[in-house]
Every structure is written in C-alpha cells, then in structure tokens.
Amino acid sequence: MSSQEPSITLYTTQTPNGIKISITLEELGIPYKVQKIDISKNTQKEPWYLSINPNGRIPAITDTFTDGQTINLFESGSIMQYLVSRYDKDYKISYPPGTREYYEMNNWLFFQNAGVGPMQGQANHFTRYASEQIEYGINRYQNETRRLYGILDKHLSTNKIPYLTGEKCTIADIAHWGWVASAGWAGIDIDEFPTLKAWEDRMLARPGVEKGRHVPDPHKIKEVLKDKEKMERYGAETRNWVQEGMKKDAKKPGQK
C-alpha cells in the first residue's frame, strides 16, 4: 500500500537538534526531502510553519500517515520515537516496545531532551549570545552541562559499553551526538571526559552519522572550534540574530 511508504519532509537547520533527525533517517536508510528553515530570517515563525509546529522551533517533519493523510510532527524526541516505531522494523537503532532495553533507551532519550539539550543550550546562551557578560550564568550552565557529561562518561566507562544502552547504537545515542560534538561551543572541554570522547568518535565513524550530520548545510562546528578567530566571528554573527529573535519573541508572547 502506497500510504505505508515514507514521504517525509524534514524542516531543519544546521543545529544539534536538527541533525538528530537527519542522522536517524540516514541510519534507517529512509528517503526524505529537506526544507531548510532560515532561523536568521525568522522563517520558523511564519504562519505556514507554525501550522506544522506551533512552537516555532526546528526540527519538524511531515509524513504521509497510514490513513493517507499528512501528519505533522515536532519535538526532536517524539520525531525520533515516531521514526523508529514506524520504520525500524528490524530494530537497527531501537529496541522492541515493551522490552527492558526499550525503557532504558527512553531514560537516556529523555535525559538528553530534558537535561543535556536545555542546559547546554543555556550555557551557549550565556557563553556566546547574551547581551551582557553574566559570570554567574556562564558558570551555572557550564557546571550543569559538565555534571551531565560526567554522568554519561561514567555510565559508559563503568558498564564498559560502546553505546548508551549497550552494544547497539540507538536513538538515545543519536540524540546526544550533535550536542556532545559541539561541547566546545558551550565552553566545555571534551578532553575531561575521555570515555565520552571515544564514544563521540565511535559515533562519527558510522556512515549514517557522517552523512546525516551535514544536513541541511555542512556540519562545521568541529572545524570552527579548532580555529579561535573563526569561532569569534561565528559567535558574533549568531549573537546578532539570536538577540533579534529574542526581541521579537518578547514583544508578542502569544502566537495566536
């Protein structure tokens, strides 16, 4: 039946949350179209996009559902759950629902979405984008990010496992990778976490990660982090549109 075939459009930007989805799709070998959302032009707040994701954030996907109608999905964690539940019939990057491993995978998936992502995001804000230097804000969120990295590092090293839920790379690993790969941007030194660093390299060696990370634009954060001048320039550019976006959000709290 044709409606069982994926017909996915991914709305995304080159960010750690965006590449979670392209990497998942590449790992599963699912064809998809990409529509780049230009955050610097606030495209994510345009009405057509809000009708797909009322939260006005990336990523989102549309797909043809089993009933032949279009389904809109947002929130990276729920998109990943959807993709494996619908298309990972061989459990390449997930576990069968209801199993112990499935719930363990979910622990770490939520750990990323509720913990690492928001806290490292705040570290980015105070380290890179804030209009004034607030030392306390920088320390608060860098310390919390470091604490969370410490949990990941210890979990991998004490259990001697290559991936977060064991021998298999799952969506819980994929959810973390883009964030861990840009640790330096938040002012975190990944060398403090050798097991996590080895995991990051192990992930990067996967063809699906390599291919998916360059969507919709090349994944440059690792090169940027090696070059201090580039890092400053990139930070200044980003700072401008982040602050513009914040001003617009503050003016209209509701989005009716």
Partner: peptide
C-alpha cells in the same frame, strides 16, 4: 490511535524540554 499517539508524545517532549527546564 496512531495520530493521537504521536501527538501525545509530542506534548510530553514539549513539557520536559520546553516547559520544565525554562
């Protein structure tokens, strides 16, 4: 139902990553 199931998951993630942390 499949559509409702994914809408539920979506709001759960919105709560844990959007409402709670901020």
């Amino acid at each position: 139902g499949f559509a409702e199931k994914w809408q539920q998951h979506q709001w759960v993630f919105y709560q844990v990553s959007g409402q709670g942390p901020y």
